[in-house]
């Protein structure tokens, strides 16, 4: 079914910079860096603030709410991990706090998906060490 893309064989490249993000997902929190110097949120995780170049940052929990900024529906699997899962939906989600994330929208027929649809984050556990943030239509 297209609404359960687990992507079990594709794991994120976790490094010192983005580890808190993925650790946060494991605990059910969507964390984004906020620059300690200029206060800007930045996603994806980065070594320095692209605005002011300061390196100190705090990890701030997001509300997990946002809306579909744009989306596509894959009808072709470009990787073995996604064979059997097409058609599946990949979307840009604009969080209420501002950052734009790439993710999946699950639990909705791709034909009913629309730009502007309100969504909320959910976490799909791949195994004990990895949970992936996806989004569902907000109730």
């Amino acid at each position: 079914m297209n609404d359960k893309p687990k992507a079990a064989s594709i794991r994120p490249t976790i490094n010192d910079v983005n580890r808190p993000f993925w650790d946060g997902c494991g605990r059910g929190h969507l964390l984004v860096q906020r620059c300690s110097h200029c206060g800007r949120l930045r996603y994806p995780a980065a070594l320095v603030c692209p605005n002011c170049l300061a390196s100190e940052a705090q990890w701030q929990p997001m509300s997990g709410r946002g809306q579909v900024f744009s989306f596509v529906v894959f009808h072709r699997a470009y990787h073995p991990a996604w064979e059997g899962k097409v058609p599946y939906t990949v979307a840009l989600i604009e969080l209420d706090e501002g950052p734009v994330m790439l993710s999946n929208v699950v639990g909705v027929d791709p034909a009913k998906l629309a730009v502007g649809l309100p969504v909320a984050v959910a976490f799909e556990a791949v195994d004990d060490s990895l949970s992936i943030p996806v989004f569902k239509p907000a109730g």
Partner: peptide, 29 residues
């Protein structure tokens, strides 16, 4: 998978067509 250490493949975001498709969907909307 585009995006390098963004790990876009985690969400199944592969290939050049997808980036252009994403832009067009928003243009459509």
């Amino acid at each position: 998978a585009a995006g390098g250490d963004d790990s876009w493949g985690v969400w199944g975001m592969f290939g050049n067509a997808a980036n252009s498709a994403m832009g067009f969907r928003r243009h459509m909307a």
